[in-house]
Design a protein around this nucleic acid. Structure first.
Length: 865
RNA sequence: GCCCCAGUGGCGGAAUGGUAGACGCGACAGACUCAAAAUCUGUUGUCCGCAAGGGUGUGCUGGUUCGAGUCCGGCCUGGGGCACCA
């Protein structure tokens, strides 16, 4: 029996066959390799590069597909597009894998990269792979070491002491995420704070610039700019000193910072950080204070842990003299909520004007004297009970500040402090310098040699890169570089005497702070950047990544380009002209009865109950959460690619949810996308015999044919806007509407051949960014010789986009009562007359006389009675 | 604890201060079929009503406005970040 195709049942689109074929052609023609071309406008689109954690899941896919849709759309729109890819390859998980599975971090990382690259290729991304690198490649981190040395030279990197989370059992520094309820995640030991001398980048040098330039980032989400501004936290206030009545450890004063010097007459106490020098001095002779400080240090270094811990203080028995009254002394406390890193590590507490100070005062029975009278309040009756008044008002109970408004009182208080010579007005930032030292193996070595005679000396450029030794064991916790028998022993480059290598490596945020610049030209072996290439390609026109990077990564990158500019490696200040923060793909989570996470592949649903596959063990189903390896709620892209085709997955990822919001991966959504793919293919095949030849242009049309043309041009117009504005889900809806219109159009309509040609050509072009393989297949079937990746984005005809009639709702007192269809832009009086003549409106008015008729042209008519 | 964001049918969501629920999913009904799958057509916020029509409805609450999902105040719930996860 022969298998003749049924003319009524066109063959189904075979994605499994077509997709690899088109990817091979793109590759063969190097369709996505970018070259500098000054004749064309450039467009650099970049998705935040991934950490090679093992496998790509469809949640990553959303990020890359989004970027790819933009890249393909811009390429078709005439831009010279750069769309590179690489790997953020240093990091803690590789070391954890080494400890847990006895694989070397390097082997583990490069294997993961190979796996993930193969997965990515299936997604059909229009990437220029010729620029690929991993940050753990010595050919990349070599240049990072050079940048580090340049920063040292320009005073942008320096050493100072700061504290880390220390696991006293494992003798290891712990990351904040490895501290769980104050204990080490593996050892369970109570974590201690430990001071180490570490390297810092001087990001505070650019604090003002980083804050002010946020205003220039017009294509960044407002919320990200707000978050960064708050993070930098510029505040104006005063720094001044309290003289002490005793001088423990020869310390005779405390410098504090405050934004509210106007509340000084409400002061009840002075509080210092547990790691303040005065605390240490007093603790020498006070065992109880030593215990208190030790207790504070068990909280760990994270601000969240410190802020959520119960507020506690310890009176150190020293008093401080009020700067405005030598006869007024205040108790000095060590308090667990005062941070050494912020301001001066000391504050004064004015309980009536600060909630935390008030809680503290109530707890330790300190006086609460209100000094700011809220607007409208009465001085005789205004009381502070459990709620502090933190707003502005009129100063009272405050001697020479009495009667002044908050603003003036602040200025007057600062003037007084200056006159007395004990303080001055200052601008303070919450932003702290960036600590980059990590006591870990799998990171970029800090290219420094410590010499007893010369101090820290930079490794000479000719000796870069300082590479990681590979013969290291991971069965003992701690930093293998520090324990290595030979690696750290090296002669001082300056004097030749025996020296020690710096065994700390760099924070992995350093790696991701300049990779986008290296992508402009990843080839130079002798310098970090090819400035000609960076001048052409940078800044990144569209950067796409998760909102979780809104502050740290993006701020560090903004710092880095400024520092690189100082060192002569770049000519710009802002790395990312446009930013889009996409939401995450979520999926339910599954837990076995023993509490282990299970992947979606390991479970099955039977009669609505979820079981571990092939067993009777029920599985606990958790809510949809961010896809993450740790919770195993991931879906691999190959699974979808093999069954439905990757275009289907791409389409689903762009549909439904707005891209900035989280989106749940569901099977029914994938099914819907698969139906659309087949529907397009079927409609195209059915219409094909009726199409005019390639290049035919529709003449004058009317009726259904004109309506079809209008639909095509309107969709083109709207989709162009939607793609430009990252409204992919709306664009998807518009394309569904167009396909519905095509499905309802009779292809045998006389004289419709040219309009149909236009419609199907346009449809193929419009779906090309989201479903590139199907678009190529359709384009070829439509008789075009060149691939659609080289085709031009269609232009909408404004005449066909415009509507000549509009339907306007009619309200009476804001409630919709009827509607009326009028020609577009009909003048107000004409609309009003038409509306008032309507029988339904007359009935609804029931004889009442309209007081006012509001006519919003082409929108709405509201009759007010 | 602090900073930022979100909340709309059974579900994902749409809506320059101007017809709330586009589009998709699901459900229901019908067509085609011996039957099924696939496909196609229709209905689908909710309440009252045979219908015409009307009430009600965007987390809660108060306000601004001719008009509020949208703007403002106060809350509730969920999410992101908090400097060593990336």
């Amino acid at each position: 029996m022969t298998d003749l195709p049924d003319p009524k049942q066109p063959a189904r689109y075979d994605a499994a066959e077509a997709e690899p074929r088109w990817r091979a052609r793109w590759k063969a023609e190097s369709a996505f390799v970018a070259e500098v071309d000054s004749a064309k406008p450039k467009y650099y689109v970049l998705e935040m590069f991934p950490y090679p954690s093992g496998k790509i899941h469809i949640g990553h896919g959303r990020n890359y597909v989004m970027g790819d849709v933009v890249a393909r759309f811009k390429r078709m729109s005439g831009f010279n597009v750069l769309h590179p890819f690489g790997w953020d390859a240093f990091g803690l998980p590789a070391e954890n894998a080494a400890i847990e599975r006895r694989v070397h971090p390097k082997a583990w990382t490069y294997e993961n990269i190979a796996t993930m690259k193969a997965q990515l290729e299936v997604l059909g991304l229009s990437l220029d792979w010729s620029r690929e690198f991993a940050t753990c490649d010595p050919s990349y981190y070599k240049h990072q070491q050079r940048l580090f040395l340049d920063f040292v030279q320009h005073g942008l990197a320096y050493r100072k002491e700061s504290s880390v989370n220390w696991d006293p059992v494992e003798h290891t520094v712990l990351a904040n995420e490895q501290v769980i309820d104050g204990r080490g995640w593996r050892s369970g030991a109570l974590v201690e704070k430990k001071a180490l001398t570490q390297w810092f980048f001087k990001i505070t040098h650019f604090a003002d610039e980083l804050l002010n330039d946020l205003a220039t980032l017009e294509r960044w989400p407002e919320k990200v700019r707000t978050m960064q501004a708050n993070w930098i936290g510029r505040s104006e206030g005063a720094r001044f000193t309290f003289k002490l009545t005793a001088t423990p450890g020869d310390i005779d004063e405390i410098e504090v910072f405050t934004t509210r010097p106007d509340t000084l007459f409400g002061a009840a106490f002075v509080a210092i950080a547990p790691d303040h020098p005065l605390a240490a001095a007093v603790a020498k002779t006070d065992p109880a204070l030593r215990n208190f400080i030790a207790e504070c240090q068990r909280v760990g270094t994270s601000e969240a842990a410190i802020e959520t811990a119960e507020k506690m203080g310890f009176d150190i028995g020293v008093t401080a003299v009020h700067p405005f009254d030598p006869n007024w002394t205040l108790p000095v406390y060590v308090a667990n909520f005062v941070l050494m890193e912020y301001g001066t590590g000391a504050i004064f507490g004015s309980p009536a004007g600060d909630q935390r100070d008030l809680d503290f005062a109530r707890k330790y029975a300190l006086p609460v004297k209100p000094v700011v009278l809220p607007p409208g309040a009465d001085a005789d009756t205004h009381r502070i009970d459990d709620v502090a008044y933190t707003g502005p008002g009129t100063t009272y109970n405050s001697r020479f500040l009495d009667g002044l408004e908050t603003r003036d009182a602040i200025a007057r208080a600062i003037a007084e402090l200056e006159k007395l010579g004990v303080g001055h007005g200052v601008t303070q930032y919450r932003l702290r310098d960036w600590g980059v030292s990590r006591q870990r193996y799998w990171g970029c070595p800090i290219p420094i040699i410590h010499c007893e005679a010369c101090g820290p000396v930079g490794v000479p450029l000719k000796d870069l890169p300082v590479t990681l030794p590979e013969d290291v064991p991971f069965d003992v916790p701690g930093n293998p570089l520090d324990r290595h028998p030979t690696w750290k022993n090296v002669a001082c480059p300056t004097c030749g005497k025996p020296g020690r290598r710096e065994t700390d490596t760099m924070d992995t945020f350093v790696d991701s702070s300049w990779y986008f610049a290296r992508f402009a030209d990843a080839s130079p072996a002798d310098r970090p950047t090819n400035v000609q290439a960076t001048d052409y390609w940078l800044p990144v026109d569209q950067y796409i990544g998760g909102i979780e990077h809104a502050i740290l990564h993006l701020l560090y990158a903004r710092f880095f380009v400024r520092a690189m500019k100082v060192a002569g490696h770049l000519n710009l200040s802002e790395p990312f002209a446009g930013l889009f923060t996409q939401g995450m793909i979520t999926h339910e989570t599954y837990r076995d009865s023993d509490g282990r996470w299970l992947s979606p592949e390991e479970v099955e649903r039977r009669d609505g109950i979820v079981f571990r596959k092939c067993t009777d063990r029920p599985v606990e189903v958790g809510p949809a959460e961010k896809m993450s390896k740790s919770k195993k709620n991931v879906v691999p892209p190959e699974e979808i690619a093999d069954s439905y085709g990757v275009d289907c997955a791409r389409w689903f990822l762009m549909s439904d949810s707005p891209p900035e919001r989280d989106s749940e991966w569901t099977q029914s959504g994938v099914d819907g996308a698969a139906r659309l793919v087949q529907r397009i293919w079927r409609l195209l095949n059915e219409a094909l015999p009726h199409l005019a030849p390639v290049g035919a242009r529709p003449g004058a049309t009317d009726g259904a044919t004109l309506a079809l043309r209008r639909a095509v041009h309107r969709t083109t117009h709207e989709l162009t806007q939607d793609l430009s504005q990252f409204r992919f889900n709306r664009g998807v809806a518009r394309l569904y509407e167009l396909v519905n219109t095509l499905g309802g159009f009779d292809a045998t309509t006389p004289g419709a051949g040219a309009a149909l040609r236009e419609a199907y050509d346009t449809l193929a072009l419009l779906i090309a960014p989201m479903m590139p393989h199907l678009a190529e297949e359709a384009w070829a079937l439509l008789g075009h010789d060149r691939m659609i990746v080289h085709a031009e984005w269609p232009a909408a005809d404004p005449v066909l986009v415009a509507h000549d009639e509009v339907t306007v709702a009619i309200q009476i007192n804001g409630k919709r009562r009827d509607e009326i269809t009028l020609r577009k832009d009909a003048p107000g009086p004409e609309v009003e007359a038409a509306v008032l003549a309507m029988e339904s409106i007359a009935r609804a008015l029931n004889g009442a006389r309209p007081k006012k008729v509001i006519v919003v042209p082409n929108r709405i008519v509201n009759v007010v009675v």
